[in-house]
Simulated scan of single mutants.
Amino acid sequence: MRWVTFDCFGTLVDWRHGLLTSADLIAPGQGARLLEAYNRHEHAVQAESPTLRYRHVLAEALRRACQDEKVELNEDDAGVLAATLPYWPVFPEVGAELSALRAAGWNLALLTNCDRDLIAETLRRLHVPFDAVVTAEDARDYKPSTAHFDVFRRSHEPSAWVHVAQSYFHDMVPAHRLGIRRVWINRLGERAPDETIIQTVLPDLHGLLTAVQDGRRP
């Protein structure tokens, strides 16, 4: 079977917008600062406790971000990111591009650094069925570990496989390590630390079917 696997948050769902606006709910006007501080801590929390539920990763990284930025955080508010995550917006082109892949005969899967219950809430917003989901709970680790990819490969034995994601660090690096074809959705206009890892680059999901079908290089 032919598969396209996706990261979810940052690739299909506007993670930055969701986190920023959620942080603004508890610290009005401080969302941008807290977003940047949060980014400095999330991977460290995951690396310290690879089996920690993602909702607890969100809360602990937010606590550390608030401490960095001298923003008072009531303990009751530490769960705001997990509470709002099911409502974070999907990028506008996602529905049409995923539908085009399915119509062309590709199976779709998510490999996500998320909890099963949280991703179940997010799936209803994507409006396109997914054939498989591998979460951090299933992998018992967080990307950039290869555990998600290993679990997926053992379960589905894909005859063709393309991985699509926004994060160079979390997704492009492990997919390259495993020899999986990959499309980098470079929404932030970043420069890759190692250009040899990159195959196809798109600024968003527009034209994804063509990129997947022909495997063109940038």
Rank of each mutant, 00 (worst) to 15 (best):
E97Y: 02
G215D: 13
P144W: 08
I26G: 03
Q46Y: 01
A109T: 00
D7W: 05
V128M: 02
P50L: 13
D7G: 12
S49H: 15
G29Q: 01
E36H: 12
V90R: 13
V201I: 14
A175C: 10
V134Q: 10
N113I: 05
H148E: 07
Q213A: 15
E69N: 05
R125M: 11
T51L: 04
E93V: 06
H56W: 13
D7E: 07
Q67A: 15
L98Q: 01
L73A: 07
Y168C: 09
L81W: 15
P174V: 07
C66E: 01
W15K: 05
R102Y: 00
A96V: 08
Y38M: 06
A132H: 13
K70C: 04
S145E: 07
H41M: 06
W184A: 04
H56S: 14
L209F: 04
R33W: 03
E48R: 15
G31H: 03
I185F: 11
N74Y: 02
L205V: 12
R216A: 14
Y168N: 09
P50C: 14
H170A: 07
A61R: 03
A82R: 02
E72F: 11
P218T: 07
R64Q: 12
R125A: 14
W184V: 01
L110S: 08
P144M: 06
V212N: 00
V13S: 07
A82P: 02
L205Q: 12
A44P: 06
A59E: 06
W161N: 00
A78G: 03
D117F: 13
A192L: 05
E121D: 14
I180K: 07
R153P: 00
S155T: 14
L52T: 06
Y54H: 11
I180Q: 04
Y142W: 10
D150N: 11
V57C: 10
A136P: 10
A96S: 15
P92W: 07
E190I: 02
L85T: 14
C8E: 03
A120Y: 01
E36N: 11
L58N: 06
G105V: 07
W3M: 02
